[in-house]
Amino acid sequence: MNARTEPAEAEAEPAAPARPPLIREFLLVAGLFLVYKAGRRLATGHTGDAFRNARRVWHLERAAHLPHENAVQSALLHGDTVVHLANTYYATVHFPATLAFLVWLYLRRPAHYVWARRVLATVTTAALVLPFTFPLAPPRMLTGTGLLDTARVYGPSVYGPPSSDHLSNQFAAMPSLHFGWALMVAVGLIAATRSRWRALWLLHPLVTLLVIVGTANHYWLDAVVATVMLGLALAVIHPPRRTATTAGLGTSLPRPREPVLAGAGR
Results as ranks from 00 to 15, higher is better:
Ser252Asn: 04
Pro254Ser: 09
Pro205Glu: 08
His238Lys: 15
Leu209Ile: 02
Gly248Trp: 04
Pro254Asn: 06
Ser168Glu: 15
Ile190Gln: 14
Ala223Ser: 12
Leu206Ser: 13
Phe134Asp: 00
Gly188Met: 08
Pro239Val: 05
Gly188Gln: 04
His218Gly: 01
His178Pro: 08
Gly144Gln: 10
Ile190Gly: 04
Trp197Glu: 11
Pro259Lys: 00
Gly231Leu: 08
Val153Gly: 02
Leu249Ser: 10
Thr227Asp: 03
Ala235Cys: 12
Met141Thr: 02
Val211Phe: 01
Tyr219Thr: 01
Leu234Cys: 15
Pro254Val: 09
Met141Cys: 10
Met184Arg: 08
Asp165Thr: 05
Leu253Thr: 09
Arg255Ala: 10
Leu203Gly: 12
Ser168Asp: 10
Ala151Leu: 06
Leu136Val: 04
Pro138Glu: 11
Arg194Ile: 09
Leu230Met: 14
Ala199Ile: 11
Ala137Phe: 00
Thr215Lys: 00
Asp222Trp: 03
Ala173Glu: 01
Gln170Val: 10
Val213His: 02
Ser176Val: 03
Leu183Pro: 03
Arg194Val: 13
Thr193Trp: 06
His204Met: 14
Ala244Pro: 05
Ala186Tyr: 14
Val187Cys: 06
Pro156Met: 06
Pro162Arg: 06
Met174Gln: 09
Ala173His: 07
Phe171Trp: 06
Thr215Asp: 00
Leu249Ala: 13
Gly231Cys: 05
Pro175Ser: 05
Val185Tyr: 07
Pro139His: 02
Val224Gln: 06
Leu253Gln: 11
Met229Arg: 04
Val207Asn: 01
Leu203Phe: 15
Asp165Cys: 05
Tyr219Ala: 01
Leu206Gly: 14
Leu142Asn: 03
Ser157Cys: 07
Gly155Ile: 02
Ala172Ile: 13
Val224Ala: 14
Pro161His: 15
Val185Asp: 07
Pro239Phe: 02
Arg257Thr: 13
